[in-house]
């Protein structure tokens, strides 16, 4: 007979702790991994589907889901504190939750990028650092399907996983005062896109004409944690065409 434990669905293990009086953190792992990523996504979905009284919003990250609530609006028996009441509700909601299969394959968000030139002044540097040609850097950067682990740092800024380590490059010794919105950069083992003009020390390899932050939309961030992203190269002319409102999807 098979080991009965093996046939039981594997429950998600987690810890709960407060972040002040108005937030609860669900910790679902300690390292960045596809397994932890799936648990975080499953947990965030479950909690968002069943908001409790006083629930405000939640923020998924690499290994955590942070739940914000209004402690003055948490209802029911709040012994000893509203945090404990919320923790019990979260435990109930997560009861029996399984890590789940890999999330249903959603279509990747396609981001056109004009690499090099004025848009990517550090493309040469990234190539030289890794003994590659600029064309090889572009090929390696456009190859993978990246995973959006979280949105943070700036509105719509995606922390992407999956970059090929052959194009890793250190941050600039002196950060630039203003990096134009849409700039695609590499910092260490990460790649990302700047949604707003901000100062920053990333090596810039190109720019996308697609807006990552759209404050007029009810869903202002183009990307969400859990999405997948692909970059594809466009010419400077195509970049200008995009900017003028031509939105030809590949």
């Amino acid at each position: 007979m098979a080991n009965p434990a093996a046939s039981l669905p594997q429950k998600i293990k987690y810890q709960l702790y407060p972040l002040g009086e108005a937030a609860l953190v669900v910790q679902l792992g300690d390292t960045i991994s596809p397994e932890t990523f799936r648990r975080v996504q499953a947990c965030a979905r479950r909690l968002a589907q069943r908001p409790f009284p006083g629930f405000l919003e939640l923020v998924p990250a690499y290994t955590t889901v942070t739940v914000y609530f209004n402690p003055l609006q948490v209802s029911g028996h709040c012994h000893p504190t509203p945090y404990h009441r919320v923790a019990r509700q979260v435990e109930e909601l997560l009861q029996g939750m399984e890590p789940g299969a890999a999330p249903e394959a959603t279509e990747a968000v396609m981001l056109p990028v004009c690499y090099g030139g004025v848009f990517g002044p550090d493309l040469e540097f990234v190539a030289q650092t890794n003994q590659l040609t600029p064309q090889e850097v572009i090929a390696l950067h456009t190859q993978p399907e990246y995973v959006v682990y979280l949105i943070g740092f700036a509105p719509g800024f995606p922390y992407l996983g999956g970059m090929n380590q052959r194009i890793a490059a250190p941050r600039r010794a002196t950060p630039r005062g203003a990096i134009p919105a849409g700039s695609v950069g590499i910092a260490g083992h990460q790649t990302g896109v700047y949604p707003l003009e901000t100062p920053g020390g990333w090596q810039l390899i190109g720019r996308t004409p697609r807006a990552l932050f759209r404050p007029d939309s009810s869903s202002p961030s183009l990307l969400k944690a859990g999405d997948t992203v692909r970059f594809y190269p466009i010419s400077e002319q195509e970049f200008r065409h995009w900017q003028e409102g031509g939105t030809h999807e590949p």
Partner: peptide
Amino acid sequence: WGYQQQGV
């Protein structure tokens, strides 16, 4: 409130 997971 409500947009922190979008970085807002």
